[in-house]
Simulated assay, not measured.
Amino acid sequence: MRDPREKLVWASKRFTEKPEDVAYSLFGIFGVHLPVIYGETKQKALGRLLEKIVAQSRDISVLDWVGKSSEFNSCLPADITSYGSTVVLPCPSEDEIQASIVSLQVAVDGTVALELHDKLNGTNHPGFSNQRLHLPCIVFRVTQIKGRRHQLEDGEIYFTYDVKANGLRDLPTITTSKRLPFLQARPAAQKFLLVRPWDRRLLELPDFSDDAESMDDLSPSPSPSDSHGGFFEEHESLDSGRTLRLIARLKRPFRAFLLAQQYGEQYTRIISEHDIIAEIQETTSESIRDIIDCVKTVEVV
């Protein structure tokens, strides 16, 4: 197993006598070197390990899980067993990608597609600092949340939420065991975001984990004024195909995170009982321009 998340799914079915060893026993498997501090909580030990894995692999799929969030950071799970219950989204076939590209050639202006590619290619990698996650992502502003409280026969309480966000199709109902910190009388008091964590593998660079090597394989990015003419035609085989493939993959359903504003520009992840699967509403030149403006790095605590 080479993929970090594949290793975590495997580890989610194993058990250790000491709680902290759920993290310590994986140091060798992931090739990390961290101090062993017996007596620290399982959540902190696992948090330190996952923080290191994200830093080394730059793989945002480590953040894909369902369960209880960690005290270390809300984007990390409290228990490694959370990696055993997520949905694996199907990868599109090459025929599906090519069919999508054909339709995009008509709907999307080539210079806009190239601008999106350059914007995403210029984003930073995800990383932690003082237990805060700096997450590059595409941000979709939540415009409406409707919540309902439910009580089962055994007295258990849970909540469901219908969420709408700019640029996304209607989402499936989000279920959580906790009430969202949302005041119906003051909907502007707190900001909510649905974000798509940015996965550099969608750029299909030769080696997405090696910046220097990857950047050497790309032509210099044109300025907007240079993109309207010979440049895009001259590099059509390199840029048009690559950029339209990127948009074809962005059109596919993706796993989204629901974030709630805490203070300033810091956010916390709201955990649903199930994966939140979202899909872009449309792919036109105008909607792609909106996406370009929504490429940001969000700080999650």
Results as ranks from 00 to 15, higher is better:
Arg269Glu: 05
Leu258Glu: 09
Val195Cys: 04
Pro77Phe: 02
Thr111Asn: 15
Ser285Leu: 01
Ile271Leu: 11
Leu183Thr: 09
Leu171Ser: 00
Ser227Pro: 04
Glu299Arg: 14
Ser25Lys: 00
Ser93Asp: 07
His125Arg: 13
Glu273Leu: 14
Glu115Trp: 13
Pro172Asp: 08
His125Trp: 15
Glu20Trp: 01
Ser61His: 06
Lys44Leu: 13
Phe192Tyr: 14
Lys191Trp: 00
Ile291Lys: 04
Glu96Pro: 00
His117Met: 12
Gly241Thr: 00
Cys137Phe: 12
Leu168Phe: 05
Ile174Met: 15
Cys137Ser: 07
Gln262Tyr: 12
Trp65Cys: 01
Ile291Gly: 06
Thr268Asn: 12
Met215Val: 11
Asp216Cys: 14
Ile292Pro: 02
Cys91Tyr: 12
Gly229Pro: 05
Tyr38Phe: 13
Leu135Asn: 07
Arg269Asn: 04
Glu17Met: 08
Gly167Tyr: 04
Val195Ser: 03
Asp162Gln: 15
Val9Tyr: 09
Glu299Pro: 00
His274Trp: 07
Gln262Ala: 13
Gly31Cys: 02
Gly264Trp: 09
Asp109Phe: 09
Phe182Ala: 13
Leu238His: 10
Pro206Asn: 12
Ile145His: 12
Val62Gln: 02
Met215Pro: 09
Arg201Phe: 04
Gln151Cys: 13
Ser82Lys: 08
Glu204Ser: 15
Ile53Gln: 07
Gly39Asp: 07
Phe140Thr: 01
Glu6Cys: 05
Tyr24Gln: 07
Lys68Thr: 13
Pro220Ile: 09
Phe128Met: 01
Lys18Pro: 00
Arg179Gln: 14
Gln131Arg: 15
Arg200Lys: 15
Glu51Leu: 14
Ser287Val: 02
Thr81Gln: 05
Val36Leu: 03
Gln151Leu: 11
Asp162Val: 05
Cys294Thr: 07
Glu299Met: 13
Pro136Cys: 08
Ala248Pro: 00
Glu156Thr: 14
Trp10Glu: 14
Leu114Asn: 06
Ser93Gly: 11
Cys137Ile: 10
Val62Asp: 03
Ser100Lys: 06
Leu8Phe: 03
Phe27Arg: 02
Pro19Gln: 06
Pro197Leu: 06
His125Pro: 00
Asp21Ala: 10
Ser69Asn: 13
Val163Phe: 08
Thr111Phe: 15
Lys178Asn: 12
Phe182Thr: 13
Val32Arg: 14
Val163Gln: 07
Tyr83Pro: 04
Glu115Ile: 00
Pro136Gln: 05
Gln184Pro: 12
Pro172Met: 02
Leu34Glu: 00
Leu133Ile: 01
Val298Gln: 02
Ala260Pro: 03
Lys52Leu: 05
Leu171Val: 04
Cys91Glu: 13
Leu168Asn: 04
Glu17Ile: 05
Thr41Phe: 03
Gly47Met: 15
Thr143Phe: 01
Arg148Cys: 06
Ser285Thr: 11
Asp207Tyr: 03
Lys296Gln: 14
Lys296Leu: 11
Glu20Gly: 00
Pro126Phe: 03
Lys119Pro: 08
Tyr158Cys: 08
His235Met: 10
Arg14Ile: 00
Gln98Val: 10
Glu96Met: 11
Glu156Cys: 11
Val300Phe: 05
Lys178Glu: 13
His33Met: 10
Phe30Thr: 04
Gly264Tyr: 09
Asp226Glu: 14
Val298Trp: 03
Asn166Ile: 06
Glu204Gly: 08
Val87Ser: 08
Ala212Gln: 12
Arg245Ile: 03
Gln105Arg: 14
Gly67Ala: 08
Glu40Met: 15
Glu115His: 14
Arg252Cys: 10
Val88Ser: 12
Phe254Met: 04
Asp293Ile: 09
Cys91Arg: 14
